[in-house]
Amino acid sequence: MILPIAIGALLKILFVPAAEGVEITGAYIFFEIPLPFGGLPITETQVNQWLVMLSLFFLCLYLTHGLKEIPDRKRQHLAEWIVETTEKLVKGNMGEYFADFTPFIGAVLGLSAFSSLLSLTGLFPPTSDLNVTAGWAILVFFLITYYKMKCGPVRYLKSFAEPVPFLAPLNVISEFATPVSMAFRHYGNILSGTVISVLLATALGGLSRLLLGWLPGFLGEIPLFRVGLPAVFSVYFDIFSGCLQAFIFAMLTMLYVAGGFPVEEYMKRQKLKASKKKQIKTLEVI
């Protein structure tokens, strides 16, 4: 589980140049794969995302290894607790029909939370790159549209002309604003945490240089105020904000998907179809 993160740290030490002073840059580009339609850059984001996925995969393997009917290990209790909590969350927010969504929501929660928490190890958190969150948001957008179209494309197109046909352009805009706001929310929160952490660390270093710079020799070089204080802010900006954003992303996914799907009408249509089939069958029998 820890091995992939160690690999990430090693890659960072070997390839990424050290930052000097206040330096806030995007993801470092390791190399570019030449393709006929422009290069495909392999960035720190992609590498770290794969490392997070690998460590999550190994964590899942570890948690579910040697399951027994009567659990006698802590990790099985933990695994069962995780699955049951996610199931309860999904059923409570989306209804019984969407119970199959549990693995997806669990994956979104885990991936998002662990990607944001990767900043605790000093690596570049993949979620502070807009490409990652935008990819997830586009996936959610397709899910929402799929479930809205389940009652037929005609009904989907009609839903734009509500409450008045004159408002259709605004409805289209609000349809596209959903994934955009989801992506920007997640990205902005994690990125602002990173930026504020860097600024705070620099400011504290400058303060200690200002106040203690008159001390002789190496004593004046020690950034005393940097010790401990940034960690307190990191509890909010890295841990709380990261977990909260993961929860909110999963929650919004559930609400949008379940909210866009007219369950009752879908059930009615299914019943109608089933009864029609029955009629045809009885006619054939006769």
Binding site: S181, Y187, G188, L191, S192, L244, F247, I248, L252
Partner: peptide, 20 residues
Amino acid sequence: MLMGCAVAETTGLYALVIAI
């Protein structure tokens, strides 16, 4: 409340992205 706060924060985050 946390959910609502996060949604209300969106406009501020748009501004933050523009500023960055």
